[in-house]
């Protein structure tokens, strides 16, 4: 039976492994963290159905019976053979497989690099992932007891040449709206503000969320970037921004500021790519054969991609891509190409 190495045990790696098992292969997942599920495992609820992220992970994990999973394991090296790859994992396991699926995902932009927002400097500035962790019950002293004013800043480290990341992270607009609604539900008296450049609500039911947020929850949307963030004597965050629709300057004191940190290519992507001489794109993500029809394929035979290693993706996109990659691998291994 053919072994297939899957680099990364996030939702893409898990879904692909489950599908490959059904197709009769032996998937081997190498995950660098101590748990499966990647970023989604740290999330609370997923839009647009507000499904529990843990429920998705459970579903994916339930289909992994028979798959080999190595946690806290990285790829030490990978060599091209005549027909396949010889791989050494950091836990000492060696394996030979004809196909490798790279599902190494993304990393979150380090919000401290946008100094003007004061992440790590002011007491009440957190990121989207910090907030999800707090929703999941992780204690966070930065979230006040009973916040009266909460501000969300979109596009932190996305679509920002100065931060070195020109592309859109796709999910943050919707995440901000989702989190704003969740916060409003937790703190009905709080006033919530979202500062955005554009709202990119392209997916199914996303627009409904936006309308709900405004109509039912009274969340304020301000089109304009936050220019600087200060702190007043009480430790509250002071935001200065421009409302480009009203053409006025806005100054807002908030008890909590949430930064929508964007998606960047994973740091390990380049290392893995260089082992098999797979091409890396100008944005730092993996380069697919093309971006329309063969997103799952690399320029090397037997190397496949799934999920956010080739660009920013939403959860449903990632899962669909993982399934497609499993089928691509099956076709490749059974010579149906």
């Amino acid at each position: 039976m053919d072994k297939v190495l899957i680099i990364g045990g996030g939702i893409a790696g898990m879904e692909a492994a489950g599908q490959l098992l059904k197709l009769g292969y032996e998937p081997v997942i190498a995950e660098k963290e101590d748990h499966l599920g990647g970023h989604v495992a740290g999330w609370h609820k997923l839009f647009p159905d507000m499904m529990d992220a843990s429920a998705l992970i459970e579903q994916l994990a339930s289909k992994l019976d028979g798959a080999t999973v190595y946690l806290r394991t990285r790829v030490a090296y990978m060599n091209r053979l005549k027909d396949g790859y010889s791989v050494m994992l950091s836990n000492g396991t060696g394996l030979v497989c004809r196909a490798v699926l790279i599902a190494s995902g993304f990393r979150l932009f380090d919000a401290a690099k946008k100094e003007e927002y004061g992440y790590g400097v002011y007491d009440h500035v957190i990121t989207n992932s910090d907030l999800e962790a707090w929703f999941n019950g992780v204690e966070d002293f930065r979230v006040p007891e009973n916040p009266r004013h909460i501000a969300f800043v979109h596009c932190v480290g996305s679509r920002d040449l100065k931060a070195g990341n020109p592309q859109c992270s796709k999910v943050c607009c919707m995440t901000a709206i989702k989190q704003a609604i969740e916060m409003k539900e937790k703190f009905p008296d709080a006033e919530i503000w979202c500062f955005y450049m554009d709202l990119r609500l392209f997916g199914k039911k996303y627009e409904d969320f936006y309308i709900n947020a405004q109509r039912d929850h009274g969340i304020h949307f301000v089109r304009g970037r936050v220019s600087e963030v200060g702190e007043d004597i009480d430790g509250r965050v002071v935001l200065k921004a421009e409302d480009t629709l009203a053409g006025t300057q806005v100054k807002l004191k908030a008890d909590l500021l949430v930064l929508m940190a964007g998606m960047l290519c994973n740091e390990d992507t380049a290392t893995i790519a260089s082992m098999v001489r797979a091409a890396v794109d100008s944005d730092g993500f993996m380069r697919s054969r093309d971006n329309i029809y063969r997103i799952n394929e690399s320029n090397r035979p037997g190397i496949f991609f799934a999920g956010a290693c080739t660009g920013t993706k939403t959860v449903p996109e990632t899962v669909a891509e993982a399934r497609a990659a499993a089928l691509d691998i099956h076709n490749y291994l059974s010579g149906n190409d």
Binding site: E115, E116, G118, G120, V121, E228, G230
Partner: peptide, 9 residues
């Protein structure tokens, strides 16, 4: 300095 709050602080 206002854009790099850590300095002012």
């Amino acid at each position: 300095t206002r854009l790099t709050p850590s300095v002012g602080k």
